[in-house]
Simulated scan of single mutants.
Amino acid sequence: MAFSEFEAKKIERAASEFLTSRRPPVEIRPRLDLDVRVSGQSVQIVETRPHFREPSTIIESPVAKATFVKKSQRWKIYWMRSDLNWHSYTPEPESRSIEEFFAIVNGCFFG
């Protein structure tokens, strides 16, 4: 189930504010950048960079993900561990809003 138009705009606005505060300077973005992707009921933050041996190939590394649980009206927060699986982010396993999710990621994942 996709987000409603209102929810999608809210996510878009929160993602834009997050990216404005966290993206590297414009001159660095071809070598390292951040992106926010929406898929189904999830919002994912992804780091992108060229492959070190094949610069024409872009590597995408997932950083964090929030999945909306309609029943509880909460966002479940996950992080990608070295085993390449999503794990619940134990210090803050859920948030009440998408804005809170981005604030948690901004403070805890990027310091």
Rank of each mutant, 00 (worst) to 15 (best):
M1Y: 08
M1L: 09
A2G: 07
F3G: 05
S4L: 07
E5T: 14
E7V: 07
A8R: 14
A8Q: 10
A8G: 02
A8Y: 08
A8H: 11
K10T: 12
I11R: 05
I11F: 06
I11G: 03
E12G: 07
R13H: 10
R13V: 10
R13M: 11
R13F: 09
R13L: 15
A14P: 03
A14M: 10
A15E: 03
S16W: 03
E17M: 11
L19N: 02
S21M: 12
R23T: 09
R23W: 01
P24R: 04
E27Y: 13
I28T: 07
I28P: 01
I28F: 05
P30G: 04
R31A: 10
L32S: 06
D33R: 07
L34S: 02
L34E: 00
D35F: 08
D35E: 11
D35T: 14
V36F: 06
V36S: 02
V36G: 02
R37G: 00
S39I: 13
S39N: 11
G40E: 00
S42K: 07
V43M: 03
V43Y: 04
V43W: 00
I45Q: 04
V46Y: 05
E47G: 10
E47Y: 03
T48S: 14
R49P: 01
P50S: 07
P50M: 09
P50H: 06
H51A: 14
H51M: 09
F52P: 13
F52I: 11
R53F: 14
R53W: 12
E54R: 11
E54I: 11
P55H: 05
T57K: 13
T57D: 04
I58G: 04
I58W: 00
I58M: 11
I59Q: 14
I59K: 12
S61A: 12
P62F: 04
V63R: 06
A64P: 00
K65E: 07
K65T: 01
T67M: 08
T67H: 02
T67G: 00
F68T: 00
V69F: 11
K70P: 01
S72R: 15
S72Q: 10
R74W: 02
W75R: 04
W75I: 05
K76N: 13
K76W: 07
I77F: 05
W79Y: 15
W79A: 08
M80L: 15
R81T: 08
R81I: 00
R81F: 08
R81K: 14
W86H: 02
H87E: 05
H87N: 09
T90F: 02
T90D: 13
P91T: 03
P93F: 03
E94W: 12
E94D: 14
S97D: 08
I98S: 00
I98K: 01
I98Q: 01
E100D: 15
F101E: 03
F101T: 03
F101I: 03
F102Q: 04
F102K: 06
A103T: 13
I104W: 04
V105E: 02
N106C: 10
G107T: 11
C108R: 14
C108I: 05
F109V: 06
F110R: 03
F110Y: 15
G111W: 07
G111T: 06
